[in-house]
Computed example of a mutant assay.
Amino acid sequence: MPHGIFTVSLDFELYWGVRDKRSIEQYRHNLLGVRQAVPAMLQVFRDHDVHATWATVGFLFFDSRESLMQNLPRLLPSYAQTVLSPYPYIQSSDCLEATYHFAPDLLDMIEACAGQEIGTHTFSHYYCLEQGQTLEQFAADISAAVATARARGLRMDSIVFPRNQWSRDYLATLSQLGIRCFRGNERSWIYQARADAQETRLQRALRLLDAYLNLSGHNTYRIAECLREQPFNFPASRFLRPYSKSLARFEWLRLRRIKAAMSDAAIHGKLFHLWWHPHNFGTNTFQNIHFLTRIAEHYRDLNRRYGMRSLNMGEICRLGNS
């Protein structure tokens, strides 16, 4: 590619992404704020021609517990830690409040916005590296996600693995089910795919510091290498951490870190991949949207100066098939 590529992926999960760690009450404000954050993000994307992949948990396609229950996978995950499975929670709930669990209205909004792709974040927010689950159960989960999207008239080209847990053993399943690309991890050891129990405080601390200071490099990638074999790996470059009042004085460092990596990709014809969760913008929405706008403005400047393009993950796939 003579020009760099700027891609964005969002892990769209609502409560399913934090259910095993927090109660709805503990995370209520972030979850409620998604309803304002999504249209605000789409407006930024529309204004600056930013293309993005919305990797969506399959549960969000439904509108009620009853409709979800009618479409469960053939096999359910048998995690050693039962709290990781959402199915006991679903089965024990008389009603799942739509605001926190379902989002067909937001998916309609995303579909209607040019340049936006709906991908999968697995059907159930499936954890590929946790003990007890099997490859066959993973295949059943992804089959359910693909079928759910197909019923809506969507083709699933792209996947983001929940908690960035993936291994090569699972990639063949993706190709068999028509999924052509995924978001891999940054190359530094502090971002290595691992089960939750294997995460250390040191790794978390270094990832936080890396958001402000260049510890792991620009994490930009040669596009030809990304397109070498299917499923294509479009690795993450930077997690867009949400605004923090306690760290507000360092916002200029966080922005400089991202802009420097984007510029590196534009100048050298490489890929820069930014990602976050919509619920990260559920609080401090104004500050987060303002920060995102400054990133989008930098992309437009790089587009004018170097011809950088914004493509979603599915669009980058098509470069590999052209």
Rank of each mutant, 00 (worst) to 15 (best):
Lys259Tyr: 07
Thr173His: 05
Leu107Trp: 02
Gly132Trp: 00
Leu302Cys: 14
Arg257Ile: 12
Gln230His: 13
Lys270Met: 12
Cys128Lys: 00
Asn71Val: 12
Ile267Tyr: 12
Leu215Cys: 09
His273Val: 11
Ala211Lys: 04
Ala140Pro: 02
Asn312Thr: 07
Arg304Val: 13
Leu215Ser: 07
Leu311Tyr: 10
Ala139His: 00
Arg74Cys: 10
Leu31Arg: 01
Val34Leu: 08
Ala149Lys: 01
Ala296Trp: 01
Ile5Ser: 03
Gly269Lys: 05
Thr82Cys: 05
Ala149Tyr: 01
Ala211Phe: 08
Gly119Thr: 06
Phe234Lys: 00
Arg228Trp: 09
Arg28Pro: 04
Ala197Thr: 13
His51Arg: 10
Ile295Met: 03
Ser175Gln: 15
Leu42Asp: 00
Gln43Thr: 14
Gly320Lys: 02
Ala98Lys: 02
Asp141Met: 03
Ser143His: 09
Ala37Lys: 01
Leu174Ile: 10
Arg168Gly: 09
Ala266Ile: 05
Tyr79Arg: 08
Phe12Thr: 12
Leu107Gln: 03
Ile118Phe: 00
Tyr87Met: 06
Leu177Val: 13
Pro73Tyr: 05
Leu32His: 09
Ser188His: 15
Tyr306Asn: 03
Cys226Phe: 02
Ala266Gln: 02
Arg180Thr: 07
Ala172Ser: 14
Ala80Asp: 13
Tyr243Ala: 06
Gln287Trp: 08
Pro162Ala: 07
Leu274His: 03
Ser175Ile: 15
Arg222Glu: 14
Thr120His: 04
Glu130Ala: 06
Asp11Asn: 11
Gln198Thr: 07
Ile118Gln: 00
His101Ser: 11
His48Glu: 13
